[in-house]
Design a protein around this nucleic acid. Structure first.
Lengths: 181, 181
DNA sequence: GGCCGATGAGTACATATGTACGCATCGCGG
DNA sequence: CCGCGATGCGTACATATGTACTCATCGGCC
């Protein structure tokens, strides 16, 4: 059979990293292998070892991408608010809106939390992420409130993903307002 | 060499499950293998397949044990409170006291969250866990406050485990009081 | 006290996995 | 236009892993 044609493929590295996130979301870190990532990115197995020193490097970069992406969306949503009420509503959105807190992102976050527990580099990434979130909240709220809201968003999001009857928008808003004033 | 003596060892199964938690804490679900668990439990490899249908069964039982244990401690601590102020202080303890929120337990929780995302049986376990927590809080607080506090505990605990300068006891108490009244 | 089924121990084996390596091919700088 | 180094491709290989299987041995029940 004819050899498969060589492809010109800049940003292959970046595509592999994105594909890694897909694989992690579907199979967990436990089920993430060079071969699965390669298949998801549509590259031959050899590309994995050519572009990355080991599977840990792939995972680390993937999770870093995740943190940056999510932190960016978080900041964008909050920056769009101008009044305090707007800001509260933005926080509510960040918790209940399906477009922000997708099951995929949540699952990936849990994988990240677990992975970061054994990977110092990712601890820094998570700290940076948390710092960005705080800063975004700090645009509208005093520091102690920002801290409380940040934790509350985390907890509510997590619990909503487990709860058989998750808190609805009104309930979340009531909680946010209790913290915000 | 003489064959190793056969041991009389009831509750070997339970010991394997406990050992599995140790292995998960140390290596993550990704690094958890039959052999490592067997070594941690000090049993031969054959015991794994004798007592469990597969590694998923071991993981599922281990995480179930984790949830039950943590939920129990949570309930105990809250049940010990009699006044509302006591209850608030109990909540603060659950967040900041090293004896409750140990790094090990936190790490295991994250592993559980990630694992449960792909394991329906464990989703039920987590829902039961959350139900117990809510009920324990419900002894002292109205339902909506209990829900908020439960999420807040989750978020604060998680963030404290990441934060370079975690919120101190006074700060946590202030947040709890904002929610509780 | 004796038997037999439940439990323990050791090992084998097919497969999955991480990683290395050699060769092919294309883009780019001169 | 040409060469060469970066990039892509296929495959090999040692190892780790899940699981099955056989044999040994103990303990509870009659």
């Amino acid at each position: 059979m004819p050899p498969s044609p060589r492809r010109h493929d800049p940003d292959r590295r970046a595509r592999i990293v994105r594909a890694a996130l897909d694989v992690i979301a579907e199979h967990g870190v436990a089920g993430t292998t060079h071969r699965r990532i390669a298949a998801a990115a549509d590259v031959p197995l050899g590309s994995m070892t050519y572009h990355f020193a080991g599977i840990d490097e792939v995972l680390t970069e993937a999770f870093t991408l995740l943190a940056d992406t999510v932190a960016g969306r978080f900041t964008d949503r909050l920056s769009a608010a101008s009044t305090l009420d707007d800001a509260c509503e933005a926080v509510v959105d960040l918790v209940v809106d399906e477009s922000w807190a997708t099951p995929r992102t949540l699952l990936l976050s849990y994988e990240l939390y677990a992975f970061a527990g054994r990977n110092p580099a990712l601890r820094s990434v998570m700290q940076a992420w948390m710092g960005k979130s705080r800063a975004a909240l700090g645009q509208h709220f005093p520091a102690d409130t920002a801290r409380a809201l940040d934790a509350m968003i985390e907890g509510l999001t997590l619990h909503r993903s487990v709860d058989a009857r998750p808190a609805d928008r009104d309930e979340v808003r009531a909680i946010v307002r209790r913290l915000a004033r």
